[in-house]
Nucleic acid binder design. Structure first.
Lengths: 184, 184
DNA sequence: TAGGTTTGTTTCAAACTTGAACCAAGCCCC
DNA sequence: GGGGCTTGGTTCAAGTTTGAAACAAACCTA
């Protein structure tokens, strides 16, 4: 099959996107590194945990939500754990499982970093976009994300074995009142 | 000042964007790593050079176009140089300057990798977007990029000293017929 | 229920990125 | 024309990411 090159419009869009994405990422990383001593991804981990049930999530779930590899997450959580912002627990119903839990200190750090972070996100992005554009942004990237979800099922013969879909909940909140096992 | 948190619409847009951006980046990196043995950024370096006058560019210019730090570029070019895909030359009119030049081998590698790369870009992005959305994408991220250009001039008191704007051309094509210096 | 596969996670080495520090070469200006 | 500032690039150590390999627990299934 002969290559379908990008049209001039697509080229422009692609370059604008790639360039801006770098700028945005860098700005976020720099701001958070300065004010919270961690890169953006680490902040996202804390943030995601803070919204989860009981402020804890299985590693695989967390990786799935953040769209990162499990290996990357392991490293990041280890660092956050060393800093006392996250704790690791083992899952009682699936002993393979490991659960990341936001500590009070982690919550505090998150809360103190949040305003500065949001301010940066506004500065670099939302303050420059019209409401219509915000909607377009969501629409465009939701579509892109959806594209990836189908891919794994069939795909172009290409599998993505390392990016799995969620596992069972396993947080105590998601557990029935009568807990199995844990007998004695 | 009290924090202007993100509205629900903005939140959704932000999350969609961040998540999709990770997926896209990973997909591109993976594809290029497989088929060309280099991450996306390195491909972009080759690609940018290939379009430049004489297929060569000063380091600072290259960094500016790619929106990356000079330090990151130095490392990347060193690797590409080791692979024989790029050569380094010194600038005759500014002896501080260093010029990265795409070699024939680099051009060949680029050309052989291009179809697969474009195909991936289509798969993950453009094949899922309407022409209107492509336009919106460009508009949105051009705006974002512009935002950064103003920033350095005044900004919120925050300087970005390491991300400079272009230097003088310095490629032989940009040189007047009568070359100064180089007296012999 | 032993053996084989799958799933959840970590580990490891190699590659990459970051930011600060450094070195030269240009530039200014008295 | 000798300081002092700026600019172009590199270097270095510390931190992060990657992908493959290792492990262990869970899940078949004969």
């Amino acid at each position: 099959m002969t290559t379908r090159w990008l049209t001039p419009e697509e080229q422009r869009a692609w370059r604008a996107y790639i360039g801006a994405a770098h700028l945005v990422e860098d700005a976020l990383d720099r701001q958070l590194q300065q004010e919270a001593g961690m890169p953006h991804m680490y902040y996202s981990i804390l943030s995601t945990l803070s919204e989860a049930d009981e402020r804890r999530l299985r590693m695989t779930d967390l990786a799935e939500r953040l769209k990162i590899t499990r290996s990357r997450l392991t490293y990041a959580v280890s660092r956050l754990e060393k800093d006392g912002l996250v704790g690791r627990e083992t899952c009682r119903w699936d002993k393979r499982g490991s659960i990341a839990a936001l500590t009070d200190e982690g919550m505090a750090v998150l809360e103190s970093a949040a305003p500065g972070h949001v301010e940066t996100v506004r500065e670099v992005l939302f303050d420059r976009l019209s409401p219509a554009q915000v909607e377009q942004l969501e629409e465009i990237f939701s579509t892109v994300t959806e594209g990836f979800q189908g891919e794994e099922a069939h795909g172009t013969g290409d599998d993505v074995p390392w990016r799995r879909r969620s596992s069972k909940p396993c947080s105590s909140a998601a557990v029935p009142t009568d807990i199995p096992g844990e007998s004695g």
